[in-house]
Design a protein around this nucleic acid. Structure first.
Lengths: 343, 343
DNA sequence: CGAGCGCATGTTCACGTGAACATCGGCTGA
DNA sequence: TCAGCCGATGTTCACGTGAACATGCGCTCG
């Protein structure tokens, strides 16, 4: 928190009053024109528009927000921009919000600690936001002793379990099942798993579905190796898996870790997919160019972003809160990193 | 632009007046406490703080902004979140701004056309922003017939040439030279280049420096192959390069395209680095896990983000505009994708 | 032909805040 | 003892906007 010392007067632009004086009408008429109301005579409207143009008038959002009690602004709280999923989600949210005439205020959380989440949430609430999208492992959000103001519309992404807020998310379970079953179907005896961090709901849901799919097929469930979503952690996990014997199929909880696994396999001279198959999750743009191109579970982040904003706007503008979870389906994208097990 | 129909009154939170009444003081005293002024008796302050707590008071940012003419908000205009550089820059900007007590409003530009840039800029100006960071190929910004309001503080990233605004950027030329000279030093006769899109200043500066370095070393300058930053375009470029004979060293204008080049080389059975060397630009987190791990030019996006905000805040709070360019230095990260040319 | 209605436009006011100025009480120093 | 001053607190006001209400004009219809 640094101090702000306003050294010079913050030159304000022209106001409605200025435009009104220039056009020879009342401020209210300018307001009507600015808001596109129809009950203004064409000639008057043109005159006002001309004056706006001439003076370079721009409506003052602060004044409008103060008057209306609405800001047309949505707060987004996000832990990191390092993960592909978060980035794409943010992009989708931003675009969807912009289309609805809302802007986005992004609040970073540098470290995923309760304390920092509380701080960030606090800062978010002091912003002028009509609603909030939280894209953070909700384990942390749950633990954080923050009480969201009761009236504040909220949507949570990458989360579950709590039923008091609407949740929008990719159907993690379906995707993980897709990946696991595909590998089994190729003839692999079982499937190893490189899991995401413990704190992440998406990670645990993917892991759970992987386990479930194996159990249902009556296969052995090997112990999962845990990473932190990063390619580096995937590499480490890959090295560990290579040590164990009999690993023929690996399902990594995201593409970045899958990339690390691929590296480990290459380093140890294991050909992919001839020696081992690898499947990722996310379908990031680059996974097509991995070596070999990665078979992965495609997530539709655009849908997640769009639906989140829809739900949030329904809350904001309609007042209808709809607790519950909306799932976006996934699909398997088969490329060259998967094949039959070595004989 | 959708219509907003406010169906229910936007429940407002408690105001200073409410807190004042609750604490038995005047609204002005509440204001003083809220702003941390010292001329309030300890007992009074405690009473006010208790009342704030009790009522769940949060200062209304719109009212404050209206009163002060300042918003503590910075607009960021960005074309895409698909490029690693943009993402890291955004992250750095967000963190730096948050540290200074500013929030970030993100405005997306879906397609890099003049028209959309104008629209976006317009929308940004209607937001309550104290300043703007533009992270867009400035070819487009230049062409767009938008006149930024004269008083508005602006910083441009990924740009150059125009001297009326401060520009903060990575030292593209230095980085490209680093990469090219390193490859020559390894014994390669010359260096092929996979360039970025024509519209990008960073791309053209990297290309220019690559050319310059070759010329200075008295080497032949092969025709550059142009991509669009994506791994897919890098793959295509790689296929094209593989056709030409005598390609032993490739400098790709970013890591994503380098990844595509690697894929093309693998596909054609050319070993890296034994058969050909590849260098990227960016040092994205994953490049360490490419196969083989990628030698690349490391950009310090944190510095770029931080310096941008510094310059912008100096403009906003100090009123000192400092046109000119600030360059952040790069460094070469040598990994396993480079080696001596095949004999 | 005049009462009344609809439509364009004007006037008033409050949204929540903080700067400027006003007030009030106690304390210092000649 | 009292003028003067300082520090805590209160009062007034304007920031730019849009809702609610007021005005005034022309036209329709009985």
């Amino acid at each position: 928190m640094s101090e702000a010392l306003p050294k010079r007067p913050p030159s304000r632009g022209p106001s409605m009053g200025d435009v009104a004086a220039h056009a020879g009408v009342s401020a209210q008429t300018v307001s009507r024109v600015a808001n596109g109301l129809t009950n203004v005579e064409a000639g008057t409207r043109d005159r006002v528009l001309a004056s706006m143009q001439a003076l370079g008038y721009r409506p003052n959002k602060a004044a409008r927000a103060l008057r209306l009690g609405r800001f047309r602004n949505i707060g987004v709280m996000m832990f990191t921009l390092s993960s592909f999923g978060n980035i794409r989600t943010l992009e989708a949210i931003t675009v969807a919000a912009a289309r609805a005439g809302y802007s986005i205020t992004l609040v970073p959380v540098e470290h995923p600690t309760q304390h920092e989440v509380s701080i960030a949430l606090d800062r978010l609430l002091e912003q002028s936001v009509d609603g909030v999208v939280i894209v953070i492992e909700s384990h942390i959000v749950d633990q954080a002793d923050v009480d969201l103001p009761p009236g504040l519309p909220v949507v949570v992404i990458d989360s579950a379990e709590r039923t008091d807020y609407p949740v929008v998310d990719t159907d993690q379970s379906q995707g993980a099942r897709l990946a696991t079953e595909y590998l089994l179907q190729l003839g692999h005896e079982t499937v190893w798993h490189v899991a995401g961090p413990e704190l992440s709901y998406s990670a645990s849901r993917r892991e759970q579905a992987w386990r479930q799919a194996l159990l249902e097929a009556g296969r052995r469930v090997p112990p999962p190796v845990r990473g932190d979503w990063s390619a580096a952690s995937g590499y480490l996990a890959g090295l560990e898996l290579v040590e164990s014997s009999g690993v023929t199929a690996v399902f990594a909880a995201n593409d970045q870790m899958a990339l690390g696994v691929l590296r480990a396999l290459h380093e140890r001279g294991i050909p992919v997919p001839a020696g081992a198959s690898v499947v990722g999750f996310d379908d990031m743009a680059e996974s097509d160019s991995f070596w070999p191109p990665l078979t992965t579970v495609h997530q539709d982040f655009d849908v997640v972003g769009r639906r989140s904003i829809e739900v949030l706007l329904a809350e904001i503008e309609g007042g209808e809160s709809s607790p519950g979870t909306i799932f976006a389906p996934t699909r398997l994208v088969v490329r060259s990193s998967t094949g039959a097990p070595p004989t």
